[in-house]
Design a protein around this nucleic acid. Structure first.
Lengths: 227, 227
DNA sequence: GCCGTTATTATGTCTGCACATAATAACGCA
DNA sequence: TGCGTTATTATGTGCAGACATAATAACGGC
């Protein structure tokens, strides 16, 4: 009956009820363990979880205190686009619009640590949901990560191939709103200058940069956090 | 030298190296504990962490397998706007533009579970960074959560007051791109129809809906995930 | 009083063991 | 064969004790 989740719930209740005010030091793990009648490890797990959520700040020796200005940590699920579309009950399809070897623009090469003059693989893909444009993908890809023979990106989207074959790499993701440029407007079938939601991702592996991708989503796209 | 993070790193390496292919069953905790020379609890913590990151799928009795289509889980830090501005080395200020009692629009009332005809508190706040518009906040607020006397929202922004006084509540967050409407364009000083980044948040406590807020960010705003 | 050293202390983590739980596999009966 | 019951098994979680680590507090020399 009194597991670590119960301890977490009770601690959370006290924080919300302001029994422990923001900035205040809360009792030590040992004391709480005695109070709740559980082992210290159990209290530790509960407090560690709340600290991970940004509600508590813990420091060795200094103790645990309630966060003064809690930063809410929201978790986003970044799924493969096919899955994203199918999860909404729509039919997924994609078209490979372009595939070329070219020298990436300086900002892209710079961010990925690529030599400015090195040629990379450039791919343009249009993702469709129920036959209508869903997202326009422009991707720069390090050719060295591809096997020989190269996968058929007309059959499997680069998005999905990378996730299943070069997956589990790290990188960062940014989101912003932009006015649709000429290419994006044409491909997505929206007016020039329409407000579009843009996702930019860079992916690195231990060996170096793998890919940079810019996803322009069709109007109406909403990014929603997990519950 | 061999802590749970080392175990996690080694497991991660094997996943990336495809020693364990996507979809494949990996050895049980007991076996890995023996192999790595650690306790089963240590392996458990490492695997649990990787499962939380979406790289492993674990089921009792069925065992642990490498995720077939790993959903990348990205974590966003949603800080108080003042902090967000100050973190970039800019001077924060805010103006309370409007404060009224009014009946919220039906979609808002509907989502929050408010009675359609009930009057709530409506606040408009402009957040400034170095004197320039940073974000336009339009907020519907359940008056019952406010203390008596009511806080001075001209002195402390509703954004910050809520975080520090009604904090630790749950809710959901959505992001989208929109064309600036008349009010937003006027307040932010951007052309009508400019692409703006919009954040919408609903917040609930155990007692019911607390607030709905729509934040229209000035052009150039980027939402970036944690490393 | 000032500053560097040492003691103290709260959290971080590991171990070994135990039992709980959920889901599959095996079994047995009709 | 088909289906409900039972056994098995991998993970989930608990406990008590131990040592590691980091940061503060106390101390002592100058």
């Amino acid at each position: 009956m009194t597991g670590w989740e119960d301890v977490r719930a009770e601690v959370l209740r006290r924080i919300r009820a302001r029994d422990w005010a923001p900035g205040a030091l809360i009792p030590g793990e040992e004391a709480l363990a005695v109070e709740f009648g559980v082992a210290r490890a159990t209290v530790n797990r509960a407090l560690r979880d709340l600290a991970g959520a940004g509600l508590l700040e813990r420091r060795r020796k200094a103790g645990t205190r309630v966060a003064l200005l809690p930063v809410r940590r929201a978790t986003l699920e970044i799924a493969v686009i096919r899955r994203e579309v199918e999860a909404r009950g729509q039919v997924y399809a994609h078209h490979l619009l372009a595939m070329d070897h070219a020298v990436p623009p300086v900002p892209v090469a710079g961010q990925l640590g690529w030599k400015p003059e090195a040629t990379k693989l450039y791919l343009e893909t249009l993702h469709l949901a129920d036959g209508k444009p869903h997202a326009f993908e422009a991707r720069w890809l390090e050719p060295a990560v591809l096997p020989d023979p190269r996968p058929d990106f007309a059959a499997i989207s680069a998005n999905e191939w990378l996730v299943t074959h070069v997956a589990y790499a790290i990188g960062d993701i940014a989101f912003c709103a932009q006015a649709a440029d000429a290419r994006g407007a044409e491909v997505l079938g929206v007016p020039l200058g329409a407000a579009v939601f843009v996702t930019e991702r860079t992916t690195f592996s231990a060996l170096g940069a793998i890919t940079f991708v810019r996803l322009v989503h069709a109007p109406g796209y909403r990014l929603v956090t997990m519950v």
